[in-house]
Write a protein that binds this DNA or RNA. Sequence first.
DNA 1: GTCTATAATGCGATAGAC
DNA 2: GTCTATCGCATTATAGAC
Lengths: 198, 198
Amino acid sequence: MATPRKKAAPADKGTRQRLIEATAKVMRDEGYAAATSRRIATEAGVKQALVYYYFPSMDDLFVEVLRAGAEVSLERMREALTDDDPLMTLWKLNSDPRMTTLNTEFMALANHRKAIRAELKSFAERVRDIEAAAVAVALRARGLDLDDHPPVAISMLIAQIARSLCNEEAVGVTLGHRELREFVERRLKLLAMPPADA
Amino acid sequence: MATPRKKAAPADKGTRQRLIEATAKVMRDEGYAAATSRRIATEAGVKQALVYYYFPSMDDLFVEVLRAGAEVSLERMREALTDDDPLMTLWKLNSDPRMTTLNTEFMALANHRKAIRAELKSFAERVRDIEAAAVAVALRARGLDLDDHPPVAISMLIAQIARSLCNEEAVGVTLGHRELREFVERRLKLLAMPPADA
DNA sequence: GTCTATAATGCGATAGAC
DNA sequence: GTCTATCGCATTATAGAC
């Protein structure tokens, strides 16, 4: 009685949405090269030709997958970074391994496909703006000189290190991870305290 | 008169070596999905079936490409990190964009292929050991407490940030790069100076 | 909106001649 | 060591029925 939809096929979601999610799943599990129209259609429980009813080409589908993931990430960032310890939140958010593998696939794709490169760039820059703004607030609150500590640099430092650790973990590399995590977290805790120097 | 080889086909290199280089080129230019036996054979100036004379399967070929690149990188590291400013050298070496795209391809591949994951892990850990050792020497020379500054953490910090910047640049993202580069380089210069705190 | 069927191409891998 | 030829299957994309 809650959803005024038509008749709810496999999970009440529209076919288009299911195709996007199926693509993300296949890319995550087997890589972008395995994300073929047939493989995706099977995953979504429809026939191959239907993919081309919803998306003009496979590349268009990939872009939609990226866009959908980006919106979710951006929303998660926006609400999390307004809390009382934005630096630690930034670190934790970027340490979330859920989007790691998919991100790597899109980085690889972006190196070779113009449409995906453009979409990824736009996404990355929107994220960076949000993160840098939150870091600026945090640094100012601690009385730090923003010329010595450019917020965008600090936010990149935190976010990129967190992501690097996730990327490595995803392929089984963990040497030095404990040391680096502890080092960063020690620094972040120092920064969260009253004033001082840093 | 210098090379006691047979007769020098397209560039005097052995066919096997040419296949490895052709594979690297195709992966760099068009991504791992484009690195098919036919595409590679054409690039190397031989016929498709010959690829299977030298390599049992495409995956074996990919592993050899990774291995070859790894040896070159390792050698470059070993000789560079013995100089007088290892921290800055580490930063500069990892800022070299030459291997960036290929690295991204192998990261993506490693997420889905066991043989490549194992090879990449072994390579990453050998690099890390070399880099951490060099950083340990540098930090000790500056009189820093290695418990507060674990060499492996510092070396990862420097190397991973440099690589992140390259990865982003490769897809056209440059927002905040200048600020972060300057921030890191300022820090590295401070560390290269006499004693002090940090 | 979803299907069947198909065109045109490309793939990994093998067999076997030279 | 390099080739030609081929098997069996997957691919993107389109045409057209329902």
